[in-house]
Design a protein around this nucleic acid. Structure first.
Length: 291
DNA sequence: GGTAGACCTGGACGC
DNA sequence: GCGTCCAGGTCTACC
């Protein structure tokens, strides 16, 4: 069956998908024909493959199985969240027109950032990006998903992202065995705090909190520091904190400091004038000789 | 509040 | 083949 969803224009599925590296992490998949795939576990426990394509008005979701109304609504809600289909970036675009490095963003539909259906998945994946090369992140996520995720019935080699319940039921050694290293206790504690009810992570997606308070809540999660919190705030749609990592410092160094080493302060200063759009300006900056 | 050292792991690099 | 360094940081102890 197919589910059709509108998107606030301008919209481009490939642009959202490639907004950062998340599409390379299991259980996402992306093929050259322009289809974003994902093995997804619904709240009913059913596991299915979603195939998302760009359509005339937004996105078309192909699901191999028949879904009841509640399941269809769940799939639609997850897709809207993942692709931020309702997002109106016209205030950001209006400011970007005056900046040569960002003038391209509206015509190319830049601005949306691909996110996972749950904040739990995005927090785990963000923790797994820290202090490791990107290839290491890909490997850790793949092993975590294939070991603890529910299998897709039609292709048991593929799996959904593991639930907090499944990860909470394992132990530190189990998580270390899939290569998480010292991050294992962080992921375990996160999963267990969600299952115990001590942390309602998904509520933060719609929490009416000042940005600074939301950041404090994220920083309370073990394994989430300044970089990870800023990255998660970006995914949640708050752009006034910069995810300053070694890559950011390298790019700012090349752009404004002639390759001389710079720190967090210089990265912050470079984008300070963008105010609440700081994060998006940084994220979509057309870096000189960039990646 | 600022800083040094430890932390899993695996690829890159020099020898 | 082996040792060292470091990668899209964070935590803890200490000052």
């Amino acid at each position: 069956m197919n589910i059709q969803l509108p998107a606030h224009p301008p919209f481009s599925l490939p642009v959202v998908v490639k907004s950062h590296g998340w599409y390379q992490l299991s259980p996402f998949g992306w093929d050259a024909s322009g289809v974003l795939t994902r093995v997804e576990r619904l709240s009913t426990g059913r596991v299915m493959e979603l195939r998302l394509r760009e359509s005339d008005v937004g996105v078309s979701i192909e699901v191999g199985d028949r879904l009841n109304d509640a399941e269809s609504q769940e799939v639609a809600a997850k897709a809207v969240w993942m692709l931020d289909l309702d997002l109106d970036l016209s205030p950001f675009y209006a400011r970007a027109w005056d900046e040569p490095r960002l003038a391209y963003v509206e015509e190319t539909a830049r601005g949306r950032i691909l996110r996972s259906p749950t904040l739990f998945e995005d927090v785990v994946k963000t923790i797994l990006t820290t202090n490791v090369s990107w290839s290491g992140t890909i490997r850790m996520v793949e092993r975590l998903v294939s070991t603890f995720g529910d299998p897709l019935p039609s292709d048991p080699a593929r799996h959904a992202f593991p639930t907090p319940e499944r990860l909470a039921a394992t132990d530190e050694d189990g998580l270390r065995s899939v290569g998480l290293g010292y991050r294992a206790p962080y992921v375990l504690e996160l999963a267990r705090s969600i299952v115990s009810g001590d942390l309602d992570l998904e509520a933060l997606k719609s929490a009416d909190l000042p940005n600074a308070d939301l950041r404090k809540r994220l920083l309370m999660i073990k394994g989430v520091g300044d970089y990870a919190a800023a990255n998660l705030l970006m995914l949640l749609g708050y752009y006034d904190f910069l995810p300053v990592d070694s890559w950011a410092m390298t790019m700012v160094s090349r752009e404004w400091y002639d390759g001389e080493p710079v720190g967090r302060a210089e990265v912050e200063a470079a984008f300070e004038r963008w105010g609440v759009w700081k994060g998006l300006a940084f994220w979509f900056w057309d870096w000189q000789g960039g990646e």
